[in-house]
C-alpha cells in the first residue's frame, strides 16, 4: 500500500527531463561512446602500466635505481679530474671501497697508497690526452699532495703498530710523490733503518727500497716532473 498522498506522488513522478533535455543528454552520451570507442581502437603504448601490480612497480623501480646507480658507479670509475662523474668516484666509490677493503692499519696504508697510484695514473692519462691545463695541473697537484700525505700518515701508523717497515713499494710511491728525489728518499730510509739497528738489515732494506723507488720513478717520473711537486712543497715535506 503506497503511503504517499496521491498529489505528492503525482508531483514527484512529474519531475522528469524535458524532451529537449533528454535528447541532448542522449546525443552527448552517443558522442562520448563513439569518441571513446575510436580512442580505444588505437592502443596506447602505456596500457601495460594499468595491469602491473604495485609490488611489480616497486621491484621495477628498485631495478631501475640499482641499475642506474651501478652504471653510474661504473662510469664514474673511469672518470678523470675535471669530469662530471669524478666526484662520484672520489666521494662515493672510493669511500665505499675503503669501507669494504680496510681491515687493518696495513691494509689501510696499502689502500691509500693504491689511491695515490690511481691519482698519479689519472694525471698521466690527462697529460697523455693533453688536457692538463694550468688550472687542472694545480688541482691535480693538490689532490696528489693531499693523497700522499694521507698515505704517508697511514703507512707511519701501520709501521708504528707493527714495529717493522712495511710496504717498500708503497713507501717509495709516497716518497716520490712528495719529494721526487732519490737522494732525499735514501736519507729518510737510512734514518728509519738506523733506528732499528743492524747493518745487514739496513743494506738489504736499502737495496730493496731502492729498487722499488726506481720502479716508481720509472713509472711515474715523467708526470711527477711535469707536476713539479717540489716547487710548491709545503706541509707534505718530510718532517722527520
Amino acid at each position: 500500500m503506497n503511503p504517499f498522498p496521491q498529489k505528492l506522488l503525482q508531483y514527484l513522478r512529474s519531475i522528469k527531463l524535458s524532451d529537449t533535455e533528454r535528447a541532448a543528454l542522449r546525443t552527448t552520451l552517443i558522442a562520448h561512446m563513439r569518441e571513446s570507442s575510436a580512442r580505444r581502437a588505437i592502443p596506447s603504448p602505456w596500457t601495460w602500466s594499468l595491469y602491473i601490480k604495485p609490488a611489480q612497480v616497486a621491484f621495477l623501480s628498485l631495478l631501475i635505481v640499482v641499475g642506474y646507480g651501478s652504471s653510474m658507479t661504473l662510469a664514474a670509475d673511469a672518470a678523470l679530474p675535471g669530469d662530471i662523474l669524478y666526484h662520484v668516484k672520489t666521494r662515493l666509490n672510493e669511500p665505499i671501497a675503503r669501507l669494504v677493503t680496510v681491515t687493518s692499519p696495513a691494509t689501510e696504508a696499502k689502500f691509500e697508497t693504491l689511491l695515490l697510484e690511481k691519482r698519479l695514473e689519472e694525471a698521466e692519462t690527462l697529460d697523455t690526452r693533453e688536457k692538463l691545463g694550468p688550472e687542472l695541473t694545480h688541482s691535480v697537484r693538490e689532490v696528489i699532495r693531499e693523497q700522499s700525505s694521507k698515505a704517508k700518515k697511514k703507512i707511519k701508523d701501520a709501521e708504528d703498530m707493527s714495529g717493522v717497515q712495511i710496504l717498500s713499494v708503497a713507501t717509495s710511491t709516497v716518497h716520490v710523490a712528495t719529494s721526487s728525489s732519490e737522494s732525499s728518499f735514501e736519507k729518510v730510509l737510512e734514518k728509519k733503518q738506523s733506528k732499528r739497528g743492524g747493518d745487514n738489515v739496513v743494506d738489504i732494506e736499502k737495496g730493496k727500497n731502492k729498487r722499488a723507488l726506481k720502479a716508481v720513478l720509472e713509472k711515474h717520473g715523467r708526470i711527477l716532473e711535469k707536476l713539479d711537486l717540489d716547487s710548491e712543497k709545503g706541509d707534505t715535506e718530510e718532517g722527520e
Binding site: 519531475i15 543528454l25 542522449r26 552517443i30
Partner: peptide, 22 residues
C-alpha cells in the same frame, strides 16, 4: 562488441534516464 554495448546502454538510458534525473 562496442555496438552491442552502445545499444545496451542506450536502452538503459531510454528506460531509466528520467528516474535517475528525478
Amino acid at each position: 562488441k562496442d555496438n552491442s554495448l552502445e545499444m545496451k546502454l542506450l536502452v538503459a538510458y531510454d528506460a531509466h534516464a528520467d528516474a535517475i534525473f528525478r
